[in-house]
């Protein structure tokens, strides 16, 4: 089993030989579906190298890197981060639409930035350290 951390959360899925996972798990974790032409989302398909496809399994790390995103794993290959590439981050900011997020307060209640649309927001960070 492997833990995969993405922008949308943490997923525990079956994996072998690094991050070869079932097509179903790949789609759950990334939103991209395995098809004959490659990994597809909406109208877009990204071809997979033949080594990245084994039986019904997909090398999710190789696919994620091919998209231009960083991938990092722990020493044992059990915990993986599928990160977001610089280009995606920069593009999201360049339009000046404030990137949306949902985070919990002390009581665990989630708050979403976009729910404040219609108000001016002073978004600020702090830390205990």
């Amino acid at each position: 089993m492997a833990v995969v951390l993405t922008e949308s959360g943490a997923f525990t899925i079956a994996a072998k030989d690094g991050l070869y996972v079932s097509a179903a798990d790949a789609e759950t974790v990334t939103g991209w579906a395995l098809k004959p032409e490659g990994m597809c989302r909406d109208e877009l398909c990204v071809p997979l190298a033949s080594a990245a496809r084994r039986g019904g399994a997909v090398d999710l790390a190789a696919f994620w890197r091919k998209l231009g995103n960083p991938v990092v794993s722990d020493r044992g290959g059990e915990v993986w981060v599928l990160g977001t590439g610089a280009e995606s981050r920069a593009d999201a900011l360049a339009g000046l639409a404030a990137p949306d997020f949902s985070l919990p307060d002390l009581d665990g209640e989630m708050h979403t930035l976009s729910a404040l649309r219609g108000k001016k927001v002073f978004l600020t960070t702090w830390a205990s350290w």
């Binding site: 404030a98 002073f122 960070t125």
Partner: peptide
């Protein structure tokens, strides 16, 4: 530190001003 990653923040406190339309001003 998801917010810092989204907005490229490097220290605290940093502030971002966001208008009524959700635009970074």
């Amino acid at each position: 530190h998801r917010l810092a990653a989204l907005y490229g923040m490097v220290n605290v406190p940093q502030g971002v001003w966001i208008d009524e339309e959700g635009r970074i001003v």
